[in-house]
């Protein structure tokens, strides 16, 4: 089996990277919200239309796009391995498949978690 770096599609590390990114997003959202509300809370009357909500949703969309891109990348890799049927390739196809699905779910989970930012005021 050829040597892969952890970032290459097909490396088993790809299986967890999607949700590692999700975790970092989660911590940054929760932590950023708390710190921002402490340092410079936007006015409550503005509801969900504050700079803070704007920032959080922009960040969410950015992470969402990144995860979608990574999903596309490993999906393409997985499809390319479909044509071959060598035994070692079975493992790489497994990794490609699992990481593609996990990237996709991470993307959806990011978006779902970010949507409340559109309707709720941040610090109350």
């Amino acid at each position: 089996m050829s040597k892969l770096t952890w970032f290459a599609p097909g490396h088993p590390a790809q299986i967890v990277i999607g949700f590692v990114i999700w975790s970092i997003w989660f911590i940054a959202m929760y932590g950023g919200l708390s710190v921002a509300c402490q340092l410079a809370p936007p006015e409550v009357e503005k509801g969900a239309f504050t700079w803070l909500n704007g920032g959080l949703i922009a960040f969410t969309l950015l992470v969402f796009a990144l995860l979608l891109f990574l999903a596309w990348r490993s999906g393409r890799y997985c499809a390319s391995k479909h044509k071959e049927s060598d035994d070692a390739v079975g493992f790489e196809r497994f990794v490609g498949y699992v990481s593609t699905v996990l990237y996709l779910i991470a993307a959806v989970a990011t978006l779902a978690g970010g949507l409340p930012v559109l309707v709720l005021s941040p610090c109350s």
């Binding site: 989660f26 959202m29 929760y30 919200l33 708390s34 509300c37 779910i105 989970a109 779902a112 978690g113 949507l115 409340p116 930012v117 709720l120 005021s121 941040p122 610090c123 109350s124």
Partner: peptide, 18 residues
């Protein structure tokens, strides 16, 4: 807990059903 923070966790709690 602030509402928005509650919302993150509510969504995550339901996601675990998947």
């Amino acid at each position: 807990i602030p509402q928005l923070a509650q919302a993150f966790f509510s969504v995550a709690s339901m996601l675990v059903a998947i």
